[in-house]
Design a binder for these strands. Structure first.
Lengths: 202, 202
DNA sequence: CGGCCCGGAATGAATGTTCATTCCGGCACG
DNA sequence: CGTGCCGGAATGAACATTCATTCCGGGCCG
């Protein structure tokens, strides 16, 4: 069997061990950062031998990058759930923001991992994509804002600024919740996203 | 001369080399992260021998922590500049936010370093301080928000949430500017801070 | 004056440790 | 009996830190 994805195989062959390795890496990196996650420890936590990891991932960088891509897709999928294109813009925004924040709170490890990833040399590559205009990264959020500007509902500011206004607070508040500085219940989540909307609306 | 601060000396004796080491560490860590800043490289960049660093800093952790403290103080000082306690709350907020954002843009290395620091095991300690209610970390910002809540000018939300709403966007937009995704001029800075105020005001 | 000696700062090669990655004997399945 | 997956010990590179040695300035003695 050819483990490394062949030219026409489904992108990733299912494998119990592969999944265990990813899970272990996620846990360790989210909790202790890249420093506190040596391959040997990942192996132990995944219940496999150190060498086995290399049967599934060419090296640590690849492992880390694939884990990122997996989480990225997972979030994209989640935040599209229940999206209704015919509702007014404001409602779609609130729905999207709420979904995102809920996801972070429900999956703190995913959130912490993404933060680690972005603040690391790995993140640079991802940023380059953003320069090159690739849509996907939070693409829905971006689209929403563009639409708002076009409809004159949203302040007329550069997209990057609007993006920061809309999602900067969500990220920071999610971090605070996960670190235990606030307890966000459903009501607070809605208030928070509403306040973000207040910030960008005209 | 006693380099390590004596009991009644000013906290840090002035030293050409000490300053060079801190500058080199700041540059390297801000640009390449903690990974890309081995002591040997810091030494080269500072123009001193590797061993010399240890005459000024007990070890790498201490070096990193002292650099953080130095930047922290520098920012506190800056953001207090021109603060007028008798102006209305909104104006004080706008002044403070603008000053902060300007600082980040004028000192991108400081900003990047602080980001690295917070997303690292070192940051944990700092966070613990916040739990224990220590005022200083962005203490002025916090005070402003408390006052706003008391005066019923600002939304009645937990302080951590308000803090995120007010400063999350500033941090994110500063990052975007430094990475080249937006070009913030003076007008945009003011618009941005104003939008943050819109987010938290009642 | 000029040579000499000393204290302490500075140096950078040597050390020990921590990993990522590789390698190889063994084991299970066909 | 093969074949190919596994485990985990072995390897070597990258670092932080140490320490024996060098260097330097400035008092002291002849």
């Amino acid at each position: 069997m050819n483990i490394h994805s062949g030219p026409d195989e489904p992108k990733t062959v299912y494998s119990e061990k592969r999944a265990e390795i990813l899970r272990a890496a996620l846990e360790l990196i989210a909790e202790h950062g890249f420093h506190g996650a040596p391959m040997s420890t990942i192996a132990v936590r995944a219940g496999v031998g150190a060498g086995t990891i290399y049967r599934y991932f060419e090296n640590k960088d690849v492992l880390i990058k694939e884990l990122f891509l997996e989480l990225h897709e997972k979030i994209c999928a989640w935040s599209l759930k229940g999206y209704e294109a015919d509702k007014p813009l404001r409602q779609r925004f609130l729905h999207f923001g709420t979904a995102l924040l809920r996801y972070f709170i429900a999956n703190p490890r995913d959130f912490r991992y993404l933060e680690q990833y972005h603040n690391s040399p790995y993140g640079a590559e991802f940023r380059r994509d953003r320069i090159l205009g690739k849509e996907e990264s939070g693409g829905l959020g971006r689209g929403l804002l563009e639409e708002g500007v076009a409809q004159q509902i949203v302040k007329d500011l550069p997209l990057a600024v609007l993006f920061s206004l809309a999602f900067g607070p969500l990220v920071m508040v999610a971090r605070d919740h996960i670190l235990g500085f606030v307890e966000l219940d459903d009501f607070l989540i809605q208030q928070t996203v509403q306040a973000c909307w207040d910030g960008i609306k005209k």
